[in-house]
Amino acid sequence: MDGALTLTDTRSDRGADTPAAVLDCAGLTRSFGDRLAIDDVSLRIAPGETYGLLGPNGAGKSTTIRMVCGLLTADAGTVTVAGLPMTPGAPARALVGYVPQDVALYPDLTARENLRFFGHMYRLRGKQLAERVAEVLDLTGLTDRGGDRVESFSGGMRRRLNIGAALLHRPTLLVLDEPTVGVDPQSRHAILDSVRAFGAAGMAVLYTTHYMEEAERICDRVGIIDHGKLIAEGTPRELVAQVAERDRVELTATGNLPGFATACAALTGVTHTDSGDGMVTLLVEDGRAVLPAVLDAAERADIAVRSVQVVEPDLESVFLHLTGTSLRE
């Protein structure tokens, strides 16, 4: 795939009266038994806006997405897409293109056969279906591979075709659930450029990711969800302003990292700590000033530090500040 996907302006065949918000979620609440999974979540996405929904595993992202797509009914609250109420089987579902985290393709079918199958699901037929399939193969850079089985595709090619399947009916709202997991850097770069192009063409995009740099690169606004509640929302710049001048110190190390993180939490200037995957992450008021004390604490705890990085405030710092953990798989 040599470049980003391009997209015809999705507003051209929707009429002139574009609603103020493509997606409007108001007071969404959902429980599973005694567990409150989503607690009064409200968010809006305007035409042409890419909205990033970030949160730790189990925070409620997938449940929110399922309610947005009409796959799950809320206990309370409403979802409307382009002014239409979203419920299972409602007409509003036809306005949504959903790209699940797991690739939803048939490996023993060709790319073209997969697209024709999903096109039939969207009630596309005849010449219109043929034109849309050809358009999506071109958009995804897979025209030359249209007759090949998906089982022969690389991970990046499968991800691109997975996105293409959700674009067949030219949705008003595109929902992407971690679309770059497991792809090569070139395909990942192309997918991100493509998402930006979708917004430029007027499509509203709801995007979840485990990669904070993706949210910083493509999202106009970001919502952070934790324990089922939307705890922060704004542009990346607005959210970064919440952590003032705090830096993030990242140490790659071996040893008792949870104990080391606890020891660091007692140091002057350290406001948050997190450990996992061979790393300790600290949110501090002045990274360079606190670093000597952190390294002394590492030596006392018999921690072997392999690398240290001081990062100025960014979305990862905001996430650590608000949730007490880093955003990682």
Rank of each mutant, 00 (worst) to 15 (best):
R160E: 12
N162Y: 05
I163D: 01
G164C: 14
A166I: 02
H169D: 03
H169E: 05
R170G: 07
P171V: 07
T172Y: 06
L173F: 10
V175C: 02
L176H: 01
E178R: 03
P179E: 00
G182L: 08
V183M: 09
D184E: 06
D184Y: 09
P185V: 11
P185W: 03
P185D: 07
P185I: 06
Q186V: 15
Q186H: 10
H189L: 11
A190L: 10
I191D: 00
L192Y: 02
L192W: 09
D193K: 10
V195C: 04
V195H: 02
R196K: 15
R196V: 02
R196Q: 07
A197S: 14
G199D: 03
G202A: 07
G202V: 12
G202R: 08
G202S: 12
M203H: 01
A204K: 09
A204W: 10
A204C: 09
V205N: 00
V205Y: 09
Y207H: 12
T208D: 03
T209N: 05
H210E: 07
H210Y: 09
Y211F: 14
Y211Q: 13
M212Y: 00
E214H: 08
A215R: 04
R217S: 12
C219K: 01
C219A: 14
D220M: 03
D220S: 14
D220K: 10
D220Q: 14
G223K: 04
K229M: 05
L230V: 11
L230Y: 04
A232N: 07
E233T: 14
E233I: 11
E233P: 12
G234W: 13
T235N: 12
P236I: 05
P236V: 03
P236F: 12
R237C: 01
E238C: 05
E238G: 03
L239W: 08
V240R: 06
A241W: 04
V243Q: 01
V243M: 01
R246M: 12
R246V: 03
R248T: 15
T252Q: 13
A253G: 10
A253Q: 11
A253R: 07
A253M: 06
T254R: 12
G259Q: 10
A261D: 09
A261S: 14
T262F: 06
A263C: 08
A263L: 13
C264E: 12
C264A: 15
A265Y: 11
L267V: 10
T268E: 15
T268S: 15
T268Y: 01
G269W: 06
V270E: 05
S275L: 07
S275W: 10
G276A: 10
D277I: 00
G278N: 12
V280G: 02
V280K: 04
T281K: 01
T281C: 13
L283E: 10
L283T: 03
V284R: 04
E285F: 02
G287C: 06
G287S: 04
